[in-house]
Amino acid sequence: MPLDRRRFLQLGAALAGAAVLAPARALGPTLAGPTGRPLKILVLGGTRYLGPAVVEAALSRGHAVTLFNRGMTAPDLFPGVTRLRGNRYPDRDGGMTALEGGRWDLTIDLCAYYPRLVEASTRLLADRTDRYLMVSSVSVFRDLKTEGPDETAAVLPLAETFEELPDLYENDWKTYGGRKAANEAIVQRVFGARATILRPCSICGGGNNDGSGAYWAARLQRGGRVLLPGDGSDPTQLIDVRDVADFAVLAGERKLAGIYNVAGPAERLSLRDYIAAAGRVVGSRAEVIWKGDFPRAMYGLPLAPPYAAVPGFATASNAKARAAGLRFRAIEETIRSNWLDHRVRRGDAFDFAAAGIGLSADQEAALLAGAEERTAAS
């Protein structure tokens, strides 16, 4: 059963005493446009995961926010914020006609998934917004077998065919990176120096849609023997959803042009380091066992892609974004917020495996037995 508010506060207080957390860093003074006034920000989407974090970051810095979406996801969020109803699809719910009379300093596009729709939105807003910021992904990189891709690395081509789904969600991962790359090109072609592209790595923190960000904390908290792939030295990347949101607003304030890899944390993070941090957050006494190899059954584990196959996915360069002002919360703070949020939303009995996340108890037991047999034979 999900936690009620009282239990949530009690749990948060208990964890705060047990966890090793660095203090949250302040955002600093509000930065506005050259006129000294708050920015007028249009957010396309705004109610799923990264969206609420972006809205909260903008409001906390004194900006005026307008949300444009279908009004179907979390319609009660941000009751004091201006809302415009419509649809990225021109033939549904009036299309984007609600935007035709508006004027904004900054547009933040959080649901840029299909080139046809991004073409329509950029054309409509070309003379109605001073800057267009699109959230893309490190999945655009063509060559993930090369370590440390930066913003100049080659990107994937657009697939010849793909399905456009009405919910404007990631879906169809085989064509996802190519679609994002095509959308980036559209935004840059229409807006030129007024275009800003952010490429986040795996986003974690409170509000995670499917619970995957809380998987390792929950598994370690459950205790027993925990099997992990490799030897723990493989790097991994993740970034707090609030850090992405903060940088998106900062990029708008500072009129940052071009492409930025929004990847964290600040320094190289091994999977062993991440697991140790998660263990500290939940006070785990679990026995962590590193399997040594990386069997196919473990490819889908959160934050644990097979590094030997895709080193670029875990080492995207963040130097440009850091120089422009990207800052990071402590990894323990991200893990803690993700785990607490997961428990409030889904409860301790949540079945990760049934939701397609991680290993079932039987799968883990079988892999553990295989690892022990190999150790004994050697």
Score class of each variant (00 low, 15 high):
V140S: 02
V140I: 09
V140Q: 01
V140F: 05
F141Y: 15
D143K: 14
T146W: 00
E147I: 11
G148H: 12
G148W: 08
P149A: 14
A154V: 11
V155K: 05
V155L: 07
P157Y: 12
A159L: 01
T161C: 11
F162I: 00
E164D: 11
L168I: 01
Y169H: 09
Y169K: 09
Y169T: 14
E170G: 07
W173L: 04
K174E: 11
Y176G: 03
R179T: 05
A185L: 13
Q188D: 07
R189K: 14
V190K: 02
G192S: 10
A193Q: 13
A193P: 00
A195V: 06
T196A: 03
I197Q: 10
L198T: 06
R199N: 11
S202F: 13
I203R: 08
C204V: 10
C204G: 06
C204N: 10
G205S: 08
G206P: 15
G207N: 04
G213W: 03
Y215F: 10
A218E: 09
Q221E: 14
L228A: 15
L228D: 04
P229F: 00
G230C: 13
G230S: 12
G230L: 07
D234G: 09
D234C: 12
P235A: 01
T236I: 09
T236G: 11
L238M: 13
I239F: 00
I239M: 08
I239R: 03
V241C: 08
D243A: 07
V244Y: 04
V244Q: 05
L250N: 08
E253V: 09
K255S: 14
K255Q: 15
K255C: 10
G258H: 07
I259R: 15
N261W: 07
G264N: 04
G264W: 00
P265L: 03
A266D: 15
E267C: 08
R268F: 01
R268W: 02
L269Y: 03
L269R: 06
S270F: 02
R272A: 15
Y274V: 10
A276K: 14
A277W: 07
R280Y: 11
R285T: 15
E287Q: 15
